[in-house]
Design a protein around this nucleic acid. Structure first.
Lengths: 242, 242
DNA sequence: ACAAAAGTGTTGGTCGTACACCCATGC
DNA sequence: GCATGGGTGTACGACCAACACTTTTGT
């Protein structure tokens, strides 16, 4: 809590800053979050979000990437975005620490090697958590579920190529309720979010028609339904100022 | 950049932290942002966002409220939410400073007394800005415009009671294009976002039918259109786990 | 042939925009 | 009465969920 250095003309107070990652992925049909079991007090033995400090030459996003790569061996985030910064004075009982959390998404088909003290935990059945990490997870799940309906964020949870039924299972797990494969195909196709590779998967042991393999048109976050209502006028002159 | 104190078991580095406010409001038919003219280097004479440091016992949201109240005399934020935390190493040329920005909204009918070095500036025609404040403003406008279509956030830009035509002007200014009063009424009514007071405004000097006064049903942020697509199943059992 | 899984056609309902028409007031 | 602005009714289209039906495979 030293000052930032009056000699520079900055007289704002300094605080320890940590970055946390809410890494979500669909595992065994359930939306899961990557948690890490604390070895030391406070909250010894409780589960917590992976993360840590920030180096002097490092942006927050690089810091969280580094921590995930070194401590947890997660290098394959398909998507990452900042969630929020928490600043409650007592959120860490040892000292005041500001925390910036990120949302990270891992496709269901990549299986990073995890140390023995980390595990995927279903978000619907979480153990008690350390600090205020519970709030970050709630915010992450809420944001993911919201964005699934008006962006292409689903690409980050799905394999590079997939059958529609696989995607249905992933989206259903993420949203927490069943979605129909029929309408999922139609909605995503109409918005040009997915496109058919012309190839098919081999049908399973029990028979059935082989599924066409699809892929997401882009692997970058895109807003696909910007205005649910109050759309800009369609015909007539564009009345936007300037 | 001192450490957080190894004696506490926290060995994360500390950084000066500032809060910034992107206060938006509709003024004279334009969406405007509250800016403050810098009196000192760096960026002397440039416009910048109001804000400042964080006290040891103060959360970020309380810090931005304090700065707005004391420096700029804005006490009447109808809505406030966190936007993002920026951490680029060179964002302040003097030293590394982390910045957390908030979005604030002021109704069009409240007119806070502003010091001479602060002013409302139209977001469509901004002067050159200090630091990276430009990015925060872009993010704030983008978030406001997005939320106008699926939440009741408009309440924070409108007076407590209003005629539909007033609201149309406010929403049009915020979105940057014209919306029709007819459909605005229908959409907001169907979603129970606005309700009629049974009173009417007196008609203007030029005549015309007196307008009914409306109010927003609630003055807290509510999501009114949670799922544009991929809605939960309507009939049949709820398949949400648990 | 039959079961299983994938994909298509169709229907009905909801929602939102556009536009025409009616209502209430001042002059 | 007429201009002005506020409010309502209706029509059309876009979109989406539900479900029946067809297609393609394995056994």
């Amino acid at each position: 809590m030293a000052t930032g250095g009056n000699s520079d003309g900055i007289d704002w107070l300094s605080y320890p800053h940590e970055v946390l990652a809410v890494v979500l992925s669909v595992r065994r049909g359930q939306l899961c979050v990557l948690l890490w079991r604390r070895a030391r007090a406070p909250f010894r033995g409780r589960w917590s979000l992976p993360g840590g400090g920030v180096e002097p030459d490092e942006r927050l996003r690089d810091a969280i990437t580094r921590h995930l790569a070194t401590k947890v061996d997660v290098r394959e985030l398909a998507h990452r975005e900042q969630l929020a910064t928490h600043s409650a004075v007592g959120r860490d009982p040892r000292a005041r620490v500001l925390a910036t959390a990120y949302l990270g998404l891992v496709p269901s088909d990549v299986d990073p090697a995890l140390p023995s003290d980390t595990a995927w935990q279903p978000v619907d059945d979480l153990p008690p958590l350390a600090f205020d990490h519970h709030f970050f997870i709630d915010a992450a799940v809420e944001r993911l579920r919201a964005k699934l309906s008006y962006t292409n964020i689903g690409f980050a949870l799905a394999p590079h190529e997939f059958a529609i039924s696989e995607l249905r299972d992933i989206v259903s797990a993420a949203l927490g309720y069943d979605v129909g494969a029929t309408n999922l195909t139609r909605v995503l196709s109409r918005r040009h979010m997915i496109e058919s590779t012309r190839r098919t998967a081999s049908s399973g042991a029990t028979g059935g028609r082989p599924a066409t393999l699809y892929r997401f048109a882009t692997r970058h976050l895109t807003v696909t339904d910007p205005f649910a209502v109050l759309k800009p006028p369609r015909h007539g002159a564009d009345t936007t100022e300037h």
